[in-house]
Design a protein around this nucleic acid. Structure first.
Length: 650
RNA sequence: GCUGGUGUGGCUCAGUGGUAGAGCAGCGCUUUCGUAAAGCGCGGGUCGGCGGUUCAAAUCCGCCCACCAGCUCCA
């Protein structure tokens, strides 16, 4: 007996997997792509079948099936590129293949185009070649070559990236390739690849090339810049349409679009890129968030501090930033003396801590500051509110004893999760950023110190049962950190909350406390930001809520709309009552039809509209309209206040 | 910073060598209106900036700036 997808089937010698699939009424209906035996994945036709085997078949609905599907489509793309170069540049030698993996959504392939002009508009020509290759239903044929054979093959075509990959696998003696032959284009294509692949190109029913972009070879900016083509494929045409539509919908939630429409912020070319101007609605949003933030910090034993925006370079030399962070700092001179526009708040907090002697009994000391910092970011990295050059960190530093450290880190982590959940973020991922052991010069502190610090952070994540990814080489120069990444509308991740350990500053600044042994000890220091930065956090909020903020965050909560001139006086009376109750109100008394005013308020995402006409004025009532729901009837002013307060708390 | 793309009135966009266009918004007049766009009229742009080619440039070329996608880098 063998088992296929949990179904027991009688084993017969010399019978191949396709036969088993064909003979099973259920399996034959499904479009299987690859198989797995003992957790190794195979091409369907190369699946080893032995008695007592447990075999799994994967179709597009499984992650493994999708990976193979997309990866195979990337081979078709690469083959099409070769065909295109043969047609347009008299040979395919100019295009060099790098790598072409599947990714979370689709696939890409990186090419070196040998200086040939290739533009986005050429993608449609590539697509039509791909269609031909798919129509031909060309099989993916696997063969195994020796090291010498494959090197010879690749040297002949001077595929330098493939040769580099082979040379990287020094101990590997055999390499697999997958070949496809097109009669129509008289093209033999092969690509070194572990596989597995789908049986033939015809399995790809629908695909789309999405974009052309640059990417460094091996992600290293000192290496060649390659052309990367992104694409997606599906077993159904409708799925491609749905996918493209989904992306279009997500783009409508872009905070740069909504930020303009909802009058939240501007960034001006003439005043400098990456520098944000907050309009009244954005200013209100910030104020709501910042007040909440301060209240929650005071509840948890933090003291609020404020530090200057500039400081003498001396401070940054002591902190180490002048050496380790210089390329990100704005440095300038006043009276021949160097000053730095602060890129971080920590040295300032250390200065405050150091103004007196601290007993172990006083620890932990926790300082918090909404500290605005400036960092030079490379122009290509800037992105609306999510990546700017001037931003306000919701910063805080915990000074504690070594024994308090685990508890304090845990408290900070819980606090961060409290905040992001309060603001409605559902999706986030956690990373443990560690040092790169190969590059010790990049970091302050010794390897031993790093190991200890990394362990403290890791233990807490394990204790809290948080799933996280270890990221070697991702740490900042002064210590390891736990990062929480938040997603934007298109699923791109941005670092938000962060908890960072620091053994660097206490030593550099000699930051100490007096222990119960009456001796001086270095304090342990934790940097943390719960939102990350106000700018990035609000950018994410706009996208997550698609501009439809919950009542408590809405810059404008109620729009008062008068039906005619006759009801303006009554409208003003109501407005006064609402404002006395700390409700954020706009008034619209223009000479416009009520439908027009409603439409505008709806488009501005105003949660409540009060329509005040003759009837309301005469009967001293309000006609209430809720955003997205429409007319919800009449209430007295008192009743509306109660309704409003109730919905604030939900 | 790198690769590719884009830049036209407040906003969204059309216009590829021959005297700058539309819709929305704004302003004026009419309309005083009941739950997602009333009608008519008017004003507004040295076409991102600088330089060049040309009898003539939004349009072609060069440099710069900004933005978009991706890479790199990070809150």
């Amino acid at each position: 007996m063998i088992t296929i997808n949990n179904k027991s089937i009688e084993y017969k010698e010399n019978k191949i997997l396709f036969d088993y699939i064909k003979e099973d009424a259920e399996f034959s209906k499904q479009k299987f792509l690859i198989s797995g035996v003992d957790n190794i994945l195979y091409d369907l036709k190369l699946t080893p079948i032995k008695d007592n085997n447990i075999i799994w078949l994967y179709d597009f609905s499984s992650e493994r099936g999708r990976d193979a599907y997309w990866h195979s489509t990337s081979h078709i793309l690469a083959m099409a590129m070769k065909v295109w170069f043969k047609k347009n540049h008299g040979g395919d030698e100019k295009v060099k293949l790098a790598i072409g993996p599947s990714i979370e959504n689709g696939f890409y392939y990186d090419f070196d185009l040998g200086g040939t002009a290739f533009k986005e508009e050429n993608l449609s020509e590539i697509e039509s070649i791909m269609k031909d290759l798919i129509e031909e239903n060309i099989p993916f044929v696997k063969s195994v070559l020796t090291r010498e054979e494959i090197l010879e093959k690749y040297k002949k075509s001077n595929e330098k990236f493939k040769i580099e990959i082979i040379e990287q696998y020094k101990d590997e003696k055999e390499f697999a390739i997958y070949s496809n032959y097109s009669k129509k284009y008289e093209m033999e294509f092969f690509d070194m690849c572990r596989g597995p692949h789908i049986p033939s190109t015809g399995y790809v029913k629908a695909f789309k090339l999405l974009s052309l972009a640059g990417a460094y070879w091996r992600g290293d900016e000192n290496k060649d810049m390659l052309a990367r083509i992104y694409g997606i494929s599906f077993p159904d045409k409708q799925m491609v349409k749905d996918y493209v539509e989904k992306i279009e919908e997500a783009k409508k939630r872009d905070h740069r679009v909504l930020g303009k429409k909802l009058e939240i912020f501007s960034i001006f070319e003439e005043t400098g890129s990456g520098l944000v101007y907050w309009h009244p609605h954005g200013g209100m949003l910030r104020d709501i968030i910042e007040r909440f933030w301060k209240d929650e910090h005071l509840k948890r034993g933090y003291d609020l501090v404020v530090t200057p925006h500039i400081a003498r370079a001396e401070l940054w030399k002591t902190s180490g930033h002048y050496d380790f962070y210089k390329e990100n700092m704005y440095i300038f001179k006043i009276d021949e003396e160097e000053y730095v526009l602060k890129p971080m708040n920590c040295p300032g907090h250390v200065m405050i801590y150091k103004t007196k002697i601290h007993s172990y009994r006083d620890l932990p000391v926790k300082y918090a500051e909404l500290g605005t910092v400036y960092r030079y970011e490379r122009s290509g990295a800037l992105h609306g509110l999510l990546r700017v050059r001037g931003f306000t960190q919701d910063d805080g530093h915990v000074f504690c004893t070594p024994s308090q450290l685990p508890e304090e880190v845990e408290k900070v982590f819980d606090f961060a999760v409290f905040m992001i959940e309060k603001f409605g973020y559902k999706k986030y991922s956690v990373e443990l950023s560690m040092r790169d052991p190969k590059n010790p010069a990049k970091y302050a502190g010794t390897a031993e110190e790093w190991d200890v610090a990394q362990k403290v952070l890791k233990d807490i994540l394990i204790k809290k049962n948080i799933s996280f990814v270890e990221m070697p080489g991702e740490a900042v120069f002064y210590g390891p950190k736990i990062d929480i990444k938040l997603q934007d509308a298109l699923g791109r991740e941005w670092q938000g909350p962060t908890v960072q350990f620091d053994f660097n500053l206490p030593r550099r600044f000699n930051v100490t406390y007096i222990g119960d042994d009456n001796k001086e000890h270095f304090v342990y220091m934790v940097h943390r930001a719960l939102l990350g930065s106000i700018e990035r956090f609000i950018g994410g909020l706009i996208e997550n809520y698609a501009g439809k903020f919950p009542l408590w965050l809405s810059p404008v909560q109620v729009a008062i709309l008068s039906v005619t001139d006759e009801t303006v006086d009554y409208s003003k009376e109501i407005c006064t009552i609402l404002k006395e109750n700390n409700i954020r109100v706009t008034e619209d008394y223009r000479n416009e039809k009520i439908g027009y005013k409603i439409r505008e308020a709806e488009n501005n995402q105003t949660p409540y509209m009060l329509i005040l006409g003759k009837k309301e004025k005469d009967e001293k009532i309000l006609s209430i309209r809720k955003k997205g729901e429409g007319d919800i009837g009449h209430l007295s002013a008192e009743e509306f206040l109660k309704l409003f307060k109730d919905s604030l708390n939900n």
